[in-house]
């Protein structure tokens, strides 16, 4: 896999933006690269820098120090910023703040229209994008009549219609009910299967466990970085920075500590049930 987004010694200081004199380094000398086609979850509590990081990935913010490149393009180069944003789309938290048009299909067409795409091509892209988030049957509906989960899927379709190479989800499920969250997560997993680079900013651990890689942010720096099993098996460390671990991971961690043989970093219900059954059988 090749490098798609690269951060080299990036510092971001909000005081430079707001000029209120207060120093607040939201990101501190951070280096990170995101591979093409990967699914990376970024977790951390509020104020850890995870949302600032997201905004640095597509040039909404540019670093105070250091360099961010997307597909080799420096995000601080204003001539390239439209190319950067076309490649890296972003879905935000509040579904109601992202809808601009009066029908679903017009909303999805908004971004490609702005990019100057041919009308026939727009039609094609809109249909495909709605299909991929399973919202085709709602194309003539008014967005105001949709549920939160459906609105977010429309917002995602709007991004897909730009044909980006990467989509960032900045706490896009935080305001949804469990059903809506499930719908959005399923959509994300499908995008990833089709080769999209996915960056998921979240504080729901049961979403992060689906990623290929989990980056844990704390105080503007990377605290942990690895696959979900490696990261979540470090229960104590996550607790120290006030993050949750999945309940089954916690259970397995305690039983392992007591000397029972269980695989490290169990994350899902089924595998935990399987592992516990083996444990019971072994003793017989």
């Amino acid at each position: 896999m090749s490098e798609f987004i690269k951060l080299e010694n990036v510092t971001f200081d909000y005081s430079a933006e707001e000029q209120n004199g207060q120093h607040h380094e939201a990101i501190k000398n951070l280096s990170l690269s995101i591979e093409k086609g990967s699914f990376v979850a970024i977790i951390g509590h509020n104020g850890s820098g995870k949302s600032t990081l997201a905004k640095l990935f597509n040039g909404i913010l540019v670093p105070t120090n250091g360099r961010v490149t997307v597909d080799g393009m420096d995000t601080s180069n204003e001539d390239l910023i439209f190319d950067v944003r076309r490649r890296v789309g972003m879905v935000f938290q509040n579904p109601d703040n992202q809808i601009v048009a009066t029908t679903v299909e017009e909303d999805v067409a908004f971004a490609p229209e702005n990019l100057g795409v041919e009308p026939s091509e727009i039609r094609h892209r809109v249909d495909q994008a709605l299909e991929s988030v399973k919202m085709s049957e709602y194309k003539e509906h008014s967005p105001s009549q949709l549920s939160g989960g459906q609105k977010q899927r429309v917002a995602i379709a709007g991004i897909i219609a730009m044909q980006p190479e990467c989509i960032i989800f900045d706490e896009s499920t935080a305001m949804l009910d469990p059903q809506g969250r499930k719908e959005v997560l399923e959509t994300i997993l499908k995008l990833k299967e089709r080769g999209m680079t996915v960056i998921l900013i979240t504080h729901y651990m049961n979403e992060a466990v689906n990623a290929d890689r989990v980056v844990v942010m704390n105080g503007g720096s990377i605290e942990m970085d690895g696959n979900p099993r490696e990261v979540f098996s470090q229960v104590e460390k996550l607790r120290e920075i006030e993050l949750d671990v999945p309940q089954v991971t916690d259970l397995a961690y305690r039983l392992r500590r007591d000397g029972f043989e269980l695989p490290e970093g169990l994350l899902f219900e089924e595998e935990t049930i399987g592992a516990l059954m083996k444990l019971f059988e072994r003793g017989k």
């Binding site: 469990p178 059903q179 049961n206 999945p246 309940q247 089954v248 259970l251 219900e269 935990t272 049930i273 516990l276 059954m277 019971f280």
Partner: peptide, 19 residues
């Protein structure tokens, strides 16, 4: 239609199997 906690799903299954 609500999700039950992960830990409940695991303990219910182990109970059903008599473990």
């Amino acid at each position: 239609g609500l999700d039950i906690p992960q830990i409940t799903a695991v303990t219910e299954e182990l109970t059903k199997r008599g473990l």
